[in-house]
């Protein structure tokens, strides 16, 4: 099965492969480097004499008797209680995903099956909110939240994250539900279901692929958020990303940059696993917008 359209001269192939390799290095090297370096002491990771020290770790060897050390992790997780931020992040992401999907599937289903043209306005809204920096809304939240005394708590940040992401969630789920044939739930209606029953019995069993894809993006919004969580959470409720940012200020002065490096690596590792598991769905989700857009 050799297709002439796919036949390529050797030099071209070699060029292609080398560009791909260069790209992989550009894309992945910084992360791998930082992961490796997070097990070294600062003197090695930021070496004045020779950057190879970050690979071989002579100072780490000198200080700890091994080229690997958990010092940075111990400092971040135990001394600076980074585990609190991890727990907060877990709470925030799980809640955001659960709430926005629950509200989103109901709303997205209704939008997909409504004969009226709400979907256009929804698209416009999703577009505008996609474009609007999160910070612009946050300046609207702060003062009322102070006044109502709900500033600083996890539920507040959760509901704000859900709301800001909701136009996008609705839009994605709506276009997904549109791809489920109408016949399915209409058959259920004729067979004797109310709308809610039809949704529950006919749609819920088949909607999981789309819901999972949308959920991935909700997860990423919540997990990666910096603007909302850093402005709306009090010190002890901070999630990982803003917590790392607040590490930066203090640790740089005290010569404890490695704490921040360890914390950064701790926040990246779950994403590694995440991409490994969901690569296909992520790609299809990213392109879904382009195709249906």
């Amino acid at each position: 099965m050799s297709n002439p359209a796919e036949k390529r001269p050797l030099p071209l192939k070699a060029l292609a492969i080398s560009i791909v390799l260069i790209w992989i290095i550009i894309a992945a090297f910084p992360f791998l480097w930082t992961m490796w370096g997070s097990f070294k002491v600062e003197g090695d990771f930021f070496s004045r004499s020779d950057w190879m020290n970050a690979v071989t770790g002579p100072l780490t060897q000198e200080k700890h008797g091994s080229t690997f050390t958990m010092e940075g992790y111990e400092g971040a997780w135990i001394e600076r209680e980074f585990y609190r931020a991890v727990i907060n992040t877990a709470i925030v992401t799980v809640s955001v995903v659960a709430v926005s999907l629950t509200l989103g599937t109901l709303g997205g289903y209704a939008l997909a099956r409504s004969g009226y043209k709400y979907s256009f306005w929804l698209l416009m809204m999703a577009l505008v909110f996609r474009a609007m920096p999160g910070v612009t809304l946050i300046s609207g939240y702060m003062l009322p939240f102070f006044e109502l005394n709900i500033w600083g708590y996890l539920p507040t940040a959760i509901i704000v994250l859900v709301a800001m992401n909701q136009p996008f969630t609705l839009w994605m789920l709506h276009s997904f539900f549109k791809s489920i044939p109408r016949d399915l739930d209409e058959a259920a209606l004729v067979d004797g279901c109310s709308r809610f029953q039809a949704f529950r019995l006919a749609i819920i069993p088949v909607m999981w692929p789309g819901v999972i894809t949308t959920g991935l993006f909700s997860f990423l919004t919540a997990y990666n958020d910096f603007a909302v969580t850093s402005m709306l959470l009090s010190e002890q409720n901070l999630t990982m990303i803003p917590q790392i940012n607040s590490f930066l200020g203090s640790s740089q002065e005290e010569g404890k940059v490695m704490y921040a490096v360890a914390a950064v690596v701790s926040s990246i590792v779950p994403l590694f696993v995440f991409i490994m598991i969901f690569q296909r769905r992520l790609v299809s989700g990213l392109t879904a917008g382009a195709v249906k857009g």
Binding site: V20, W23, I24, A27, A28, P30, F31, W33, T34, G37, F45, F46, L220, Y223, N224, D225, F226, I241, I244, N245, L248, V257, A260, V261, V264, S267, I268, L271, F272, F274, I275, M276, Q279, L282, V283
Partner: peptide, 24 residues
């Protein structure tokens, strides 16, 4: 694998991604 590694810079939030580069 190419797609896997390519996704990393995009998925990692800008603050973390830029920190990683900043240190390098």
């Amino acid at each position: 694998p190419v797609i896997f590694f390519s996704l990393l810079p995009m998925i990692v939030t800008p603050l973390i991604g830029s920190l990683v580069l900043f240190w390098m």
